[in-house]
Simulated assay, not measured.
Amino acid sequence: MDSADNSAPDGRYLAPTVDQALKILVVGSFGVGKTTLVGSVSEIDPLRTEETITQASTGVDDLSGLSGKTATTVAMDFGRITLNSRMVLYLFGTPGQRRFWDLWEGLVIGSIGLLVVIDTRRIEDSFEILDQLDVRSLPFAVAINQFPDSVRYEEADLREALDLLPETPLVHIDARSHHSSTQALITLVEYAARIKAQEKVA
């Protein structure tokens, strides 16, 4: 599936050829780069619901390894990307903290799948997120966000650490990069399409 810019010239409206709209959730633990990813790929100004991190979060949100983080998503991020002349993705970024997980229940409705963003510097924070996906029975792909100071691990080691099935897509991204983030979304869309086709045959 090739990515192409088929949005209207001013970026606000869909091209008239678009006839397929897909919804994707971008999930992950606190501070892994979900808001950055949605912002890097969105062809419209992304909707963000960020609030400044205050002293009230002390002892609640673990900021270790996140010295530059000053804000956090408290509801959702929203963006849109046109993949080709017929298909558009609507992206919903979810808060990473457990106290906001109830929001997932509404956001997940109608989604074709989830892109799980992971920071290997704090990989253990992702275990509970992955556990949440097991009860939702939706296709998901894992995107390893490569921060400048993070170690690049072998795929086999990551799959073992995250307890991923062999068929679960795993990609490396820079969440700031439009290209690599878009490729991760395309990987998820293609995987979800294969799962749907298999279900029709079964």
Rank of each mutant, 00 (worst) to 15 (best):
V32M: 07
A192C: 07
L66I: 12
Y13E: 12
S64L: 11
D131M: 10
R176T: 04
A8Q: 14
R98N: 00
A192H: 04
S150F: 02
D131H: 11
F100H: 11
V171W: 05
L188G: 06
Q97W: 09
L165Y: 03
S181K: 06
P139T: 04
L162G: 05
D131G: 06
I123Q: 11
T35A: 03
V189I: 11
A4V: 13
M87I: 13
F100P: 08
L91H: 05
E190N: 14
L83S: 01
I118M: 09
I109F: 11
G110I: 04
R136M: 04
S29V: 10
Y90K: 01
D45E: 10
G110Q: 07
E105P: 00
V135W: 05
A4E: 12
I53Y: 06
L107I: 06
F78L: 09
D2H: 09
T94Y: 03
T82I: 09
R159F: 00
S67Q: 15
N6E: 14
M1Q: 08
I195M: 04
T17Q: 14
A75F: 15
Q183L: 08
R48L: 08
S64D: 15
T120W: 05
M76A: 15
T182H: 06
R194H: 07
Q20M: 05
R12D: 07
V27C: 10
V60N: 12
G68S: 15
Y90V: 03
V18E: 02
D2I: 12
Y153F: 07
T17N: 13
N145T: 05
G31F: 00
V18F: 04
A193F: 06
H178A: 04
I129C: 11
L37Y: 02
G33C: 00
A175H: 08
L107R: 06
T82Q: 08
M87H: 11
S42I: 03
R176G: 13
E167S: 15
R99G: 10
L89T: 04
F140P: 03
L164K: 06
L158T: 04
G31E: 08
V151A: 09
I53S: 09
S7D: 13
P166G: 02
S181T: 15
L22H: 01
R121S: 15
K23Y: 00
E167Y: 10
R176I: 03
L103Y: 06
E199H: 01
V142M: 02
V142D: 02
R80M: 12
L162H: 00
Q132C: 13
L138A: 10
T168A: 00
E128G: 03
S29T: 12
A192V: 08
M76V: 09
E160P: 01
V38E: 03
I144H: 05
S57C: 12
Y153W: 10
Q20H: 07
V60L: 14
K200L: 09
S111Q: 00
A175F: 03
Q146S: 14
A202M: 10
S29W: 12
N6K: 07
P46E: 01
L164H: 07
I144A: 06
F92Y: 14
E128A: 15
L22I: 01
L107G: 10
D174H: 00
D131A: 01
R159A: 06
L63E: 04
G68I: 01
F147H: 14
S67Y: 13
V18I: 14
G33N: 02
F147W: 14
G113R: 02
V201A: 03
G106N: 10
R98W: 01
V74M: 02
M76F: 15
E190I: 13
L47R: 11
